[in-house]
Amino acid sequence: MKITDIFYPSLIKLNLNASSKEEAINELADLIDENGFLFDKVLYLKEVFKREALGSTGVGMGVAIPHGKSKFVKEACVAFGKSLKGINFNSADGSLAHLIFLIAVPEDTDNQHLKILATLSRMLIHQEFREDLLQTNSLEEVMQVINSQT
């Protein structure tokens, strides 16, 4: 299994319109929903915001990884959005999030999907990977950067 099994060009937005955390999560959830990965967007989002309430998923370094594990997800996937202006995710380091990954995982997901998400999370610690992602200008370039690292 490869990262492209959960990371699709149709779930990438190079320039998010959102100007708040809630808007960004909703905008990416719309993409996931439009592409048929959810049974119920509202109920999936409830899980995402429940996780946010436990502590912001703005991890600093310009990155946010909101996520929800829910039975209202059909199939595991990741939506990716870039925000040029940056979005306040209440990151501990005070940085605005420019790279936002919204993860959707079904309740009974298999370990292979989780393994890919773990790999992606680990990759984000590396500055070079973040910078490469920031510099992408097309869906193909994003897929290329993601693929080159996994």
Binding site: G55, V59, I65, L117, S121, R122, I125, H126
Partner: peptide, 17 residues
């Protein structure tokens, strides 16, 4: 971390690095 999907692994990688 509570969901164990992302932050657990980011933190591990960060400490290792």
């Amino acid at each position: 971390c509570p969901t164990g999907i992302a932050h657990t692994y980011m933190a591990a990688e960060a400490l290792e690095e």
